[in-house]
Structure formats: structure tokens, C-alpha cells
């Protein structure tokens, strides 16, 4: 797989670290309740198809990026800097 880092350009997958679903962009408040935190930390839509997940260009510029990707075809449709994503 190759991912286009918004800062560095197209790079091999091995330069990136993967953490999981981009649900992390929506961290609940401390008092959001048990269910909200359970969803945030554990439960996943886990789609067979288009998804958004979080990667870090760890062996490159260090940027965390949101990757729009298909879990069946591995097509990468869009890559955005996590820091710039409106949430």
C-alpha cells in the first residue's frame, strides 16, 4: 500500500504507523458516560468498504493523517492532516 502524505508526497506503507479508526478525532468529554467511552475505546463500525482511519507518517515527517480508504480493495481515496480536520 502507498499513502500520499500531505506534507511529503506518496510514500510506502512501511513508513507509516497505524492506530485504528478515526473515531479518535471525537474524544468524548470525561463526563460523557460509560457507553460513550466504551464506543470510543472499544466498539467499531468496522466497515467492509469505505472507512476513515488514523495513521502517522512516523518514519517521515511525524504527521498524523486521516486516511479515507477502502478496507476491501485497499484503494486510498484521500489523505488529510489530522490537525487540520474540522471536528
Amino acid at each position: 500500500m502507498r499513502i500520499t502524505c500531505p506534507l511529503c508526497g506518496e510514500r510506502d506503507r512501511r513508513e507509516f504507523y497505524y492506530v485504528g479508526d478515526a473515531v479518535a478525532l471525537r474524544r468524548p468529554s470525561p463526563d460523557a458516560g460509560e457507553a460513550a467511552w466504551d464506543d470510543y475505546i472499544h466498539n467499531r463500525d468496522n466497515p467492509a468498504g469505505d472507512t476513515q482511519d488514523l495513521w502517522q507518517h512516523e518514519a517521515g515527517c511525524g504527521a498524523w493523517v486521516v486516511v479515507d480508504r477502502n478496507t476491501v480493495t485497499h484503494a486510498v481515496n484521500n489523505v488529510t492532516l489530522a490537525a487540520k480536520v474540522t471536528r
Binding site: A24, L25, L54, G62, L81, A82, A83
Partner: peptide, 8 residues
């Protein structure tokens, strides 16, 4: 730390 800084 980068995760917290950039993502959270």
C-alpha cells in the same frame, strides 16, 4: 505525544 498534540 504527537498523537495527542495533532489529533486530540
Amino acid at each position: 505525544l504527537e498523537y495527542v498534540r495533532q489529533v486530540l
